[in-house]
């Protein structure tokens, strides 16, 4: 379990992370979304022991991460800007990883390389950006990590590759209870892959939830009555948002769908439709409720 307790990281006078706390359980695929400068990369670098926090604790299974080989050997980090040795091929990089990760599995590396259709002997400089991402991901996954950290890795992969990578991660999660932490700009990216989601803004986690819960906790109801009505009609329901145009009202409701439907039907509406919300819409309304303008946070 990755636990961050009130971690603060400053660069000079700029505070990148401000007393950030979060817990990532094992076997979870954790998505972290936020705009540029929100602190996603900083967070990952704190968790992987690259940065030392100014204050706060970062532990994996209650053991501190920083400069702790016992803990660090269990994870691998795939950064947004990839590092390759000059003029290296994938094979050369595999050797580097072999030297630096005791758990590096050369067979897996070869299998994955073949599956992804990459040539391990070619100079990586000749790879496209997406292929470089794939190469880096393959190398990282071949270290058989218990924890794998992706910094905006998926943003550069095409859908086919993304599925391949997802499946490898899923396989690891199933078999070894591996944990993955993925950051991204885009909710859409994370929606399919992750089971936990957190929103990072200005160095702090504003919102954290299970994805499935997110999707089911809020829903939209379109309702119309042939009589006059207003918001007061729906007092028994947890309405987060109420928009009325003419006789049709759109409600964003939090709660149990079945119960709400039943309640509404008892009011004899002429129109009653339940519409699912996209994850983005869920976020927007949740942020709204928290007092943030979501549009300011995500590009």
């Amino acid at each position: 379990m990755i636990k961050t307790e009130k971690a603060t990281k400053k660069f000079g006078s700029f505070t990148a992370l401000n007393e950030l706390s979060c817990t990532i359980p094992d076997g979870c695929i954790y998505g972290l979304v936020g705009s540029n400068g929100a602190g996603k990369s900083t967070f990952l670098r704190l968790v992987t022991g690259i940065y030392k926090p100014e204050s706060g604790k970062i532990t994996i299974d209650d053991k501190p991460v920083y400069e702790n080989p016992e803990v660090k050997k269990r994870f691998v980090f795939v950064p947004d800007e990839l590092y390759f040795l000059p003029q290296a091929s994938m094979q050369r990089m595999a050797r580097l990883y072999e030297h630096t990760y005791a758990s590096f599995n050369i067979e897996r590396f070869q299998n994955l390389t073949k599956t992804f259709g990459l040539d391990p002997k070619v100079n990586l400089n000749g790879f496209s950006k997406g292929m470089k991402r794939q190469a880096a991901t393959i190398l990282a996954l071949s270290t058989m990590p218990d924890y794998i950290f992706f910094d905006e890795t998926f943003d550069g992969l095409d859908p086919v590759m993304r599925n391949l990578v997802k499946n490898v991660i899923y396989s690891d999660v199933c078999e070894r209870k591996a944990t993955a932490v993925i950051t991204s700009h885009s909710l859409r990216e994370l929606e399919d892959t992750c089971d936990q989601l957190a929103l990072l803004h200005k160095g702090g986690i504003i919102f954290e939830s299970d994805i499935e819960n997110l999707k089911t906790s809020l829903f939209k109801v379109q309702v119309a009555f042939d009589k006059e009505y207003d918001k007061e009609l729906f007092k028994g329901i947890d309405v987060m948002n109420f928009v009325k145009k003419g006789s049709v009202a759109n409600l964003i409701v939090r709660g149990n769908r079945e119960k709400t439907i039943t309640l509404l039907q008892q009011m004899n509406p002429i129109v009653l439709d339940v519409l699912p919300l996209t994850l983005e819409e869920v976020f927007i309304y949740e942020m709204d409720a928290l007092g943030y303008a979501f549009k300011d946070m995500i590009i």
């Binding site: 979870c28 499946n167 899923y170 999660v173 199933c174 078999e175 089971d195 499935e212």
Partner: peptide, 19 residues
């Protein structure tokens, strides 16, 4: 089907399937 095989077949998060 096991969580794993279903997860891989459908390309769905195993935790979701577990749930």
């Amino acid at each position: 089907p096991s969580v794993r095989s279903l997860s891989l077949d459908l390309s769905v998060n195993p935790n979701t399937i577990q749930k």
